[in-house]
Write a protein that binds this DNA or RNA. Structure first.
Lengths: 185, 185
DNA sequence: GATGTACTCTTCAGCGTCGAAATTTAGCTT
DNA sequence: AAGCTAAATTTCGACGCTGAAGAGTACATC
């Protein structure tokens, strides 16, 4: 089997290799910019893998976790309508219906019609659902602390500040992606 | 419609609101860590939305673009086998078969049996596919430059360095996510 | 030289999501 | 009060991905 350059075996190249390859194919590339952007992508991908493992260990899916997060974030009685949830999670209402079906079956949320406005439906977190969220949160914070372990307090502050600056720029530039967002934090 | 606290309308909270809400529900939260992690998530989400718009403007999908990137990264003759591509993109071989079907129909790649080893299939980038990649790259670099516009050279260097450090930590900790990766940079 | 074994790719059934149509209810207009 | 319009949710058909089973090819061993 050829180790000839140009015959990739499917293994992921290191970031440096990748940037070098892009530069060969596209001279205008700014390696500095590419390094930041690619590292952001890869970092996020790894984080999602880690979160996926954690939710799996708790017997739920990442999809479930997103819904739990949205409900907890909504505060006190932990209630939201399906379409609000859908907007929040970047799903169509149709997809939301099925997700809620599953989660009701799993006992994480309840679904009931709003008696004061019978068009609406109220999705409410169950105590079991809240407990799952809490467990997931505990695992997540352990992982996150571990991830940032090597950063000094000053570096953390600086990093947080720079990221917020980038975020502000991009959120201001694309006011809301047309209404639905694609993922949840 | 109640503006009662606790009755979310589905709009995304600001990062500050979100962190405050999490702190209310989970006292052990380190706001510093949470800020970094959440900003990373949101940033990545926005970036993906932006890339999605760009590929759509070019008449391809993000899925197509991922394949094009992998092939270009593989270098000179721009050839890879389906299973290598699948590993690289974090898909099952089954999904890869269908993606290649589509992309062959779109004229972005060709598929042929390897005559020297008839079990294998060779997917090769067409000139049209390479041109699409180039167009996407041009759009992407404009967006990326814009994103990092406000950062001084020193800040860019520092950010790149810190991100690489984080990446190294997480890539070392989870050697390869069990073989398949979930996304491409 | 035949058979077994490993590998690559494709096919198939199931699930989640999307886009659009259908259903149900609320509020407004005449 | 009847009908019309708008809004929230569910249902339906299509598509992409997964996991598992199936088909074809190469290599090794006997």
């Amino acid at each position: 089997m050829g180790d000839t350059p140009g015959t990739s075996t499917g293994t992921e190249p290191t970031l440096e290799e990748q940037i070098a390859a892009y530069q060969r194919e596209f001279q205008d590339l700014d390696p500095q910019v590419e390094q930041i952007v690619s590292a952001l992508s890869r970092l996020n991908r790894r984080m999602n893998v880690a979160y996926g493992r954690q939710t799996a260990a708790l017997g739920i899916t990442n999809a479930d976790w997103e819904v739990l997060k949205a409900l907890v974030l909504s505060g006190a009685p932990y209630r939201m309508g399906p379409s609000d949830l859908a907007k929040r999670l970047g799903l169509t209402p149709a997809a939301m219906t099925h997700r809620i079906d599953r989660m009701v079956a799993e006992g994480l949320v309840t679904r009931e019609r709003d008696e004061s406005n019978r068009v609406r439906v109220i999705v409410e977190l169950t105590p079991a659902g809240r407990e799952k969220w809490l467990e997931a949160m505990r695992l997540a914070t352990v992982f996150e602390g571990d991830l940032l372990q090597d950063l000094s307090p000053a570096e953390r502050t600086a990093l947080g500040e720079v990221l917020i600056r980038l975020l502000r720029r991009v959120e201001h530039a694309q006011p809301d992606a047309g209404g639905r967002l694609s993922d949840l934090d």
